[in-house]
Computed example of a mutant assay.
Amino acid sequence: MAQFDGRMAIVTGGAGGIGSATCRQLAARGAAVAVFDRDEAGARNVADAIRAEGGRAAAFLCDITDRPGVDAAVAAAEAALGPAAILVNNAGFDIFKPFLKTTPAEWEKLIAVNLVGVLHMHHAVLPGMVERKYGRVVNIASDAARVGSTGEAVYAACKAGLLGLTKTLAREHARDAITFNVVCPGPTDTNLFEEFWRGAANPDKLMEAFRRSIPLGRIGAPDDLPGAICFFASDDAAYVTGQVISVSGGLSMAG
């Protein structure tokens, strides 16, 4: 499949589970992939693996909370791989605590990564897409944004903010032929979920509860997400914008 030939895709949090799976799938479908992450060594490992398979990729150190750093990383990626046609905002961070046990300092960190960082990425990448009259933006939120999640109040609020941001930008830039859509993972076997699981009072009981509550009988794997992400990034979705889809094994069935 070569549906992304000639297109450059930026993926934030590209060294992580969902991010790396998405980078590999975009590259397998022909995209030149810019792997953005604070973990520069991890990003390089992903880019190296893609190139070893015959794909095009390069790694870029990027802390999305640092706007000058974002601007520099986007400029470097476009100089190396071409203008950005696809942006996947995947980087995220969570602290698993009941709201009344969280602190304002923790709120600031959560908001900086999960909301302000995504604003930085949009603000840095969108002008070029507007100029070229083409773009696909896929924001990775969470089912916590759609149905809530105990112990994730501020994270859920940030991810809900992404839904409003996505729908608004979809309206503002529809005439620029730029689409904006959201993928909401359910519980997925990533490092973030492992932190949540290990912090539980009874991790085995929690995992069994997830398995029982998810109709498909298991938590998600990182490789379950790129199909939906690549659909929104493709021209098959050229007439789809401002939409939200859950990839959760049926745990949430929001209309």
Rank of each mutant, 00 (worst) to 15 (best):
R7P: 03
G217F: 14
Q243T: 11
V125I: 12
V70N: 10
C230A: 13
F180Y: 15
H173D: 02
I111M: 02
T188C: 13
A174R: 10
I10H: 05
A72R: 10
I95W: 03
G250P: 06
I214G: 00
R44C: 05
V244T: 15
D71I: 00
D236C: 11
T190I: 09
G161V: 03
A41S: 13
T168K: 04
H173I: 03
A15R: 04
T22A: 11
P187F: 12
A28F: 00
M1E: 13
P222R: 12
L26H: 08
D224I: 12
T190F: 06
V118G: 00
S246A: 15
G6L: 02
K97I: 06
M121F: 11
M129V: 12
A52P: 03
A85Y: 02
D66T: 06
G220I: 09
G128N: 10
I178C: 08
F93I: 10
M121S: 08
I86P: 09
D223L: 08
W197G: 01
V35D: 02
L110F: 09
F93D: 12
S246C: 11
G164P: 04
D37R: 05
G55H: 08
E53S: 14
D235F: 14
A76Y: 09
P187H: 10
G220L: 09
G117K: 11
E106N: 15
Q243G: 07
Y239H: 09
N45Q: 13
I219Q: 03
V88H: 08
A59E: 03
V130D: 00
L192Q: 14
G227S: 15
L110W: 05
R198H: 14
T241R: 07
A177C: 12
A43V: 04
A52T: 13
A80I: 10
N114V: 11
G227I: 11
R67M: 09
P222W: 13
D63T: 15
N139A: 13
Q3R: 15
V137T: 09
D224Q: 08
P222M: 10
A233E: 03
D189G: 01
K205I: 00
S142W: 04
I140N: 01
I219R: 05
